[in-house]
Design a protein around this nucleic acid. Sequence first.
DNA 1: AAAGAGATGGAACAAACGGGTCGGATATTC
DNA 2: GAATATCCGACCCGTTTGTTCCATCTCTTT
Lengths: 194, 194
Amino acid sequence: MVDKEEYRARIIRTASRIFSHYGFRKTTMDEISRALKKGKSSIYYYFDSKEEIFEAVVLYEANQLRRRLTAAIKEVDSPPDKLRNYIYVRMREFAKLSNYYNAVFDKNLDHYEFIEKIRSRYDREELAILRLLVYVGNNRGVFEVEDSEYTAMAIQTMLKGMEVPLFWRKREIDINDRLEAILRLIFNGIMKKQ
Amino acid sequence: MVDKEEYRARIIRTASRIFSHYGFRKTTMDEISRALKKGKSSIYYYFDSKEEIFEAVVLYEANQLRRRLTAAIKEVDSPPDKLRNYIYVRMREFAKLSNYYNAVFDKNLDHYEFIEKIRSRYDREELAILRLLVYVGNNRGVFEVEDSEYTAMAIQTMLKGMEVPLFWRKREIDINDRLEAILRLIFNGIMKKQ
DNA sequence: AAAGAGATGGAACAAACGGGTCGGATATTC
DNA sequence: GAATATCCGACCCGTTTGTTCCATCTCTTT
């Protein structure tokens, strides 16, 4: 009763590890159960289907992502450092998550409208974070922008733009260069000239 | 005629990329052919079976490994640096190769005696490299050991010991700590005290 | 342009795989 | 020892996948 929820969590963590490596399609229930040292059918006592596990995993990963991003921001104090940290961690984490995306875009993406939900909620949250960062930096006089809201949206657009090659290209070419370039662009366009 | 061999090489490189990510079992012929932008059946004009491709890939990777290891040694001059470089690169490359191993140990390992051949040949080569490294270091007075041969064997044993958690454990715990510890051990047991 | 070798891919197939079900075994709780 | 919670072996059946066959296509060579 009590530890049923705990066991669900354990399944989620284990499945997450395997999903993130092989994607949804290539991960089998047999593998998950073997990793848990349980019979395949036992898993169905905790979850109704493979997809349900996947949903739970995606939700779990989304929360992890949120945790890490907020941690990255709290780690440093100045707004530019916060922003840089945020972008770095975001890149790193999204790269790790790319297997989920590949899994989703493999085929039949119709079944995964729940991801869109998570996604759009995350978008709103991210925008709020960016807006706050820009706003505070502006107040402290280290940034100098007209409108925090629209600047935050512009930054988010760039970040989203960086996801595309991350999720669609095979060869991981120049990701770091690209990251540096975008950071330079953001900061040179945002930092107060003196 | 001429470029048939070239095309085989291209298939090997492409298949290698996919195999190294998903292992033998989870990699499908369809994936390989799609990555090559060819029909699935066309591949069979160049290779007789999936296993034959896999064999070619393993051979190819073994050669790559050799190349990188010798390069790592040539990169620096002093024997301790050479040894450290060698071990670092060995670790890194073996970690990358772990998927091949997982593929092999998945099931039916009986079919893969050709890997044992490659492996034992590689063992002999590695021992020769280590022996030479220790020997030269000894001559230059930076190492101080009784017998190069047996010292080299001891080092090789340690390195092999490090493969075990790499290939069998799920969570990649403390690999770097372990590496550092082993490096310290080797050097403190080997460096000339002054 | 005919012939023929080199190369390609669509379609079909048998075998294996894999998600999910079911009935019962085993453990735990009361 | 009944009741309940948890686990699993065996099975089902639609799908996947390695491989083959054969019709086509491309490009020399004659």
